[in-house]
Nucleic acid binder design. Structure first.
Lengths: 152, 152
DNA sequence: GCGAGTTTGGTGACGCGTCAACAAAGCTCT
DNA sequence: AGAGCTTTGTTGACGCGTCACCAAACTCGC
């Protein structure tokens, strides 16, 4: 590996700010969500697509695609949530390999109780701070960056 | 909790992109680092300030401040790295409560082998994709967002 | 010097996330 | 139909991260 082009001062500062922001924003959201609803970010991420689906019923495979998780991670998370009564697993009628995940009434109650506060937190920490212009630039930049990673 | 202002389409897209980018960028960096050097992001984060310190020796408290971690997290990570021979813990001469963390020769070799490739990965995925203008806007935006969280 | 409160670090339990391995079921090609 | 490959989901081990709790040592006021 030849000597690389090291980050200049501006780049290093941005990189550091990005890492810090990740940590702090994630932490702040996680704390608020946990304190106000007893849910984790991971719980919330799964509850959103589940609550939007007809009868709160989604095939595990599709749920994984919806949240961008791999199978193992989804399986672990569903197991934890099933133990707490937020979802139940059911057999998949049209494919015996498959597994359906169904939102329980308790799960629906949890997401409906949590959503307003969560959105409010995101707004307070993120969108209330950014200008319209910044939102546009960030949107474009993030999309480009995602495309770059997807192109690996 | 009154009905909040829900995210509009543009905001929701940005929020989603932010979550996806976090996941994907972190994952990509973690995979590259692991594959090329056998180090995790957490290893790397600690090795950077350690290798910059005189004699690779830093007090645990200061190391925690440097990387922005809490004591417990630092303690766990140092324990894992000590088991692999990257660092050693020593007593702190000027404060018997304290604990010094020292980079071992193996630890120094590991960070020096890993750094060029890691910087290169960050550059390829991040700075090669962004324009100068975008870097400026992101820098300013991230700094504002961090200040907002710190002000809670 | 002594006692109260603070600072520093470590530990155990548990949730989160990845990897490797596995099993069962579907699919494809002959 | 059957061999081989793919898809789907689960599991166990392990690293990462937080929380609650603890213990030792420092500090400050008396």
């Amino acid at each position: 590996m030849a000597e690389p082009r090291w980050l200049d001062e501006r780049e290093a500062r941005l990189w550091r700010a990005y890492l810090d922001l990740n940590r702090e924003l994630n932490g702040a959201l996680e704390r608020h969500l946990e304190r106000e609803s007893g849910l984790s970010n991971a719980d919330y991420a799964l509850l959103v697509p589940l609550s939007a689906a007809p009868d709160g019923l989604v095939r595990a495979r599709d749920l994984g695609v919806a949240v961008g998780w791999e199978r193992s991670r989804l399986s672990h998370q569903v197991a934890r949530m099933e133990k707490r009564g937020l979802v139940v697993r059911e057999v998949c009628p049209e494919d015996a390999r498959g597994s359906m995940v169904r939102l329980t009434p308790a799960g629906r109650a949890a997401i409906e109780a949590a959503a307003p506060g969560h959105v409010d937190t995101v707004r307070r920490y993120l969108f209330d701070v950014l200008t319209d212009e910044e939102v546009s630039v960030l949107d474009k930049a993030f999309t480009k960056l995602l495309a770059r990673i997807a192109a690996d």
